[in-house]
């Protein structure tokens, strides 16, 4: 266990440094949320009940999700392309810990997209942005990050399962913006899509963050949302373990750990 923790934290540190120079990740964490925040601010500010913090939270969620989605679905493959996957598999620590560490790095990195969206609202548009229930928001923020990160850990082994799976994952960026209700209520969606929304951790992350920032979510309802986030995180972490074993076994059988 201690060994796995060390692998986890070493990967987090390495990956944070890596992402800081990766243009694509910078794009996901900064540029895209910036543009989304600006565009959506312009689109929504006519609303009578417009609250800029809604756009800040929603755009930040888009940034966090994009980082997790791409980081997650490419986590193993990027190692394969670099030729380091064999070294990771050949090392005594588990690949699970390494990849989870990588995603933790991604999460830490994507937190900055929250700060950036805030800056867009505050400086560019001159809004005063107020989080109504700060302690609850802080709790929701941490739980939301863990829940979305856990989903990334589950996505990671899927990313090398098959090329078609990876292609499917790549186009999941905007659908989760939509189904997660990041920047509009999911009630706008056709009814048959709602069960899908409710089954997605990002949706609950959005409920928790929007709800606590506007102050509309508190008490038992808030506790319930927190419980859902925790349970979904746990479910992802648990489900990921056999998946990792499966894909690694398969890669060793098929000889696909390296490119040649």
């Amino acid at each position: 266990m201690r060994r796995e923790l060390r692998a986890f934290s070493a990967s987090t540190r390495l990956w944070l440094r890596y992402m800081a120079v990766d243009r694509f990740m910078l794009f996901c964490a900064f540029v895209q949320p910036f543009f989304i925040a600006v565009t959506v601010m312009y689109m929504l500010h006519h609303q009578p009940q417009f609250d800029p913090v809604y756009v800040v939270v929603g755009s930040a969620l888009t940034g966090i999700w994009s980082v997790v989605l791409f980081d997650g679905s490419w986590a193993i493959n990027s190692e394969r392309f670099q030729g380091t996957l064999e070294l990771l598999v050949g090392a005594p620590s588990s690949l699970y810990a390494v990849i989870a560490g990588k995603l933790a790095g991604g999460m830490a990195f994507s937190v900055t997209s929250m700060a950036l969206s805030y800056a867009v609202g505050a400086w560019l548009f001159g809004y005063s942005i107020v989080v109504r229930d700060v302690p609850a928001f802080a709790v929701a923020f941490v739980l939301a990050l863990i829940a979305i990160g856990a989903l990334g850990v589950l996505i990671a082994p899927l990313g090398i399962l098959a090329r078609s799976v990876r292609q499917f994952l790549t186009v999941l960026e905007h659908p989760i913006y939509i189904l997660g209700g990041f920047l509009f209520p999911v009630l706008l969606l056709p009814g048959w899509l709602l069960p899908i929304s409710y089954a997605l951790p990002p949706y609950w992350a959005a409920v928790a963050l929007h709800g606590t920032s506007s102050g509309e979510l508190s008490g038992v309802a808030f506790a319930e949302v927190c419980a859902v986030l925790l349970l979904s995180s746990l479910a992802c972490f648990v489900l990921a373990a056999p998946l990792f074993r499966l894909v690694l076994r398969r890669a060793r059988v098929e000889g696909t750990l390296s490119l040649t």
């Binding site: 692998a7 070493a10 390495l14 890596y18 120079v21 990766d22 670099q82 380091t84 090392a91």
Partner: peptide, 17 residues
């Protein structure tokens, strides 16, 4: 090898693993 970090970083990383 992890090209974007130093040789020492590479070694320290694998030392952890």
């Amino acid at each position: 090898l992890y090209y974007r970090v130093s040789g020492r970083d590479n070694l320290e990383y694998f030392a952890e693993l």
